[in-house]
Simulated assay, not measured.
Amino acid sequence: MKSCVFLAALLLTVWTAVQAETVTHLTRHLSACQNNGTLPERDYELDNDELFHFDFDKKEVVQRLPEFAKYWGPPEGAAARAEADRQTCTYSVDVFARCHEYPPEKLVPPRVTLFHENDLELGKPNTLICFITDFHPAAIKVTWTKNTLPVTEGVTLTQYYPNKDFTLNMFSYLSFTPELGDVYSCQVQHSALSETLTTFWEPDVQTDSDVGETAFCAVGLTLGLLGVAVGTFFLIKGNKCN
């Protein structure tokens, strides 16, 4: 009986350990297309992170992180499969639109957050990231400016990243070197917006002169408080003498 109890306890321990070490991952193959001129999309995701996608312009598979290509390669025949899925998707969109008498698209305006990738240091190359979230439909235009002038060099745009509610996210990157006084903006145009959504960014760092002014003010404030304290002391002493 004791042996049976020990065996049962041992099996329970092993089962618990296996359960504790079990990790669930989500693999998703996404095919998307529209009839408004937006390029179709075909990507492979792991836990909502893109592994690779198919570039329909260049007709090739693009690794999201090339350094991991030897670990996460595209499946055999991925290019042919992507093209077949594109044709199926385009056909299905037209059929469903006719069946439902071309219903109006759900319009969800994008939200924009603009931030820099690395610690900010004047004169040191960095990357500005324009994070565009929760928009629908996919057709969107993203542009950059520097001191009100258009910027095209050093700009990249990612694929769409879908949310569970079928809205989309996207990143746009701008390689730049921050200098004091420069003002950058990320401008987004979308059918759900009545006007262009513009988000501004400018360097917010302390220069040597700022530090000097701060130190000077601190010293002045300290001396002022010290003077008040000394004056109060002598005033009290004078009153006592009287």
Rank of each mutant, 00 (worst) to 15 (best):
Q87L: 00
C130Y: 04
G227E: 06
F56P: 00
S172I: 11
E121P: 00
S172V: 13
L197G: 05
D182N: 10
C186H: 02
N35P: 04
F171Y: 02
V14R: 00
A192W: 01
G73I: 01
V228C: 10
D182G: 06
Y160C: 03
E213P: 10
E45S: 14
D208W: 06
R86N: 02
E153D: 12
V151T: 14
D165M: 01
F200V: 08
F52Q: 13
T88A: 13
C130M: 09
T113W: 13
G37S: 05
M1H: 11
L180V: 10
A97C: 05
V151E: 01
T198E: 11
Y102K: 00
K124M: 12
K106N: 09
N239W: 07
C33A: 01
F171L: 13
V211Y: 09
F234W: 01
K70M: 10
E213L: 15
A139L: 08
L7D: 12
G181N: 11
E153K: 14
A82H: 00
L226Q: 02
N36F: 02
T177Y: 03
F233Q: 14
V205Y: 05
A97G: 00
D47T: 10
I236F: 11
Y173A: 05
D55P: 02
E101G: 12
T127L: 07
T22F: 02
H29W: 13
M170I: 15
T113G: 11
A9K: 07
T158V: 00
V61R: 05
W144P: 06
L149Q: 15
N163D: 11
N48M: 11
L226E: 11
R64F: 13
C4T: 14
K146I: 09
K146N: 15
S31I: 00
G154D: 05
W144E: 05
V108S: 09
L221P: 05
G224K: 04
L39M: 07
K237P: 06
